Simulated assay, not measured.
Amino acid sequence: MKSEATSMEQLWEENKVLKARISELEKYKAFFEKAPMSYQSLNEDGVFVDINPTWLKTLGYKKEEVVGKKFSEFLHPDWKTHFYENFPAFKKRGYVHDVIFKLRHKKGHFIHISFEGCIAYNPDGSFKQTYCVFQDITKRIETEEKSNKSIAREKVLADILRNSPLAFALGYPDGSIELFNKAFEDLTGYSEEELRGISWNVVLTPQKWRNKEEEILSELCLAKKQVRYEKEYIHKSGRIIPVELYVKAKFNESGDLVHLFAFVTDITDRRKNTDELELHRKNLETIVEERTKKLQEKNKELDKALKVFVGREMLIKELQNKVKTLEDKL
């Protein structure tokens, strides 16, 4: 009787353990079926053993279209070599973290996925199967690609500005200068370190231009448009350099001025040419005035000579008339 009671107790305990395991399996199955992340399991040859509904929903397949097929059949052609090289390493290492692949959706397009997973082993330590979950990171990859392209474009633009023969500078309303290129250093005569420590609206700008420039930049802030104007810079040597600036401004959401960026052209040669043209114009005006004065004097002399000539003609005519009158009397 005692032996039978012991057997009954053992059966009862085993039944409880079995029920507990069944309960855990049901919980696992429910989690597996309703898990928000895509799950897959591969055998040692990389063939699908199991997948969950989220996996099917993410890639658009039916279960019978996947289980029994090789994982590589669903890979983008460019990613198959990556899988062939890394799957053996995964089996040896026993886990993977944030491993990215590109899988084909049933509709034909491809999505980027990031894997997390581990290896399950048999009691004897041999390979059993993989347990992996993945996230669709297509949007993340697209965002990163756009960001990388944007960074690349900005780098190209930065290189263009840095190496441009046209002087460029970014300054702030307080007069400080942050960004500028080598051409701006050459134009002003200051080194990079020196430019970061000076004020563009005081050290570089002559006193006579400061009020006028403030008015121009105030108009820029009101109109929110770029402006082009001429002024002068004070070179480090003290030499005055005539320049033309094309200035644009950056404003914050409140409409306040954040910074100014300007392309600066040395117009010394243009100003010199303009001055020379002005000098030539004045010389021509002087020559024209002198020639006009001489012509006027000549005209006066001609008028005088003409009057004398006309007077003589009239006198001759009068004498001729008198001679004729005398002849008629005779």
Rank of each mutant, 00 (worst) to 15 (best):
E313M: 12
M314H: 08
I267M: 06
E192K: 11
T130K: 05
Y190R: 08
E194Q: 09
T205G: 04
G68P: 08
R104T: 02
K106A: 11
L42S: 02
K34F: 11
P242G: 09
P36G: 07
D98W: 01
K2G: 07
L166A: 14
E24S: 15
E4G: 00
V67E: 06
L302D: 07
K231H: 12
L302G: 05
N15L: 01
I119R: 03
K329Y: 13
Y84L: 00
L42V: 03
D136I: 10
K34T: 12
L157I: 08
V49W: 01
Q135G: 07
T292I: 03
V323R: 12
I113D: 03
T292P: 06
T143R: 10
F87W: 04
V264L: 10
I287H: 07
K317H: 11
L75E: 01
T274S: 13
D256K: 12
F110D: 03
W200A: 08
E278N: 14
A120E: 12
Y95G: 00
S218C: 03
V288F: 13
H235Q: 10
K304F: 13
S218D: 14
T188A: 05
P206F: 09
N201T: 08
L295I: 14
K69F: 09
F31A: 15
F184L: 12
E65P: 06
K294N: 15
K80Q: 04
A30S: 14
H109L: 09
K225E: 15
L302M: 13
V67S: 01
I111A: 00
G175N: 05
V310M: 14
L319T: 09
R228S: 10
V96H: 00
T188R: 06
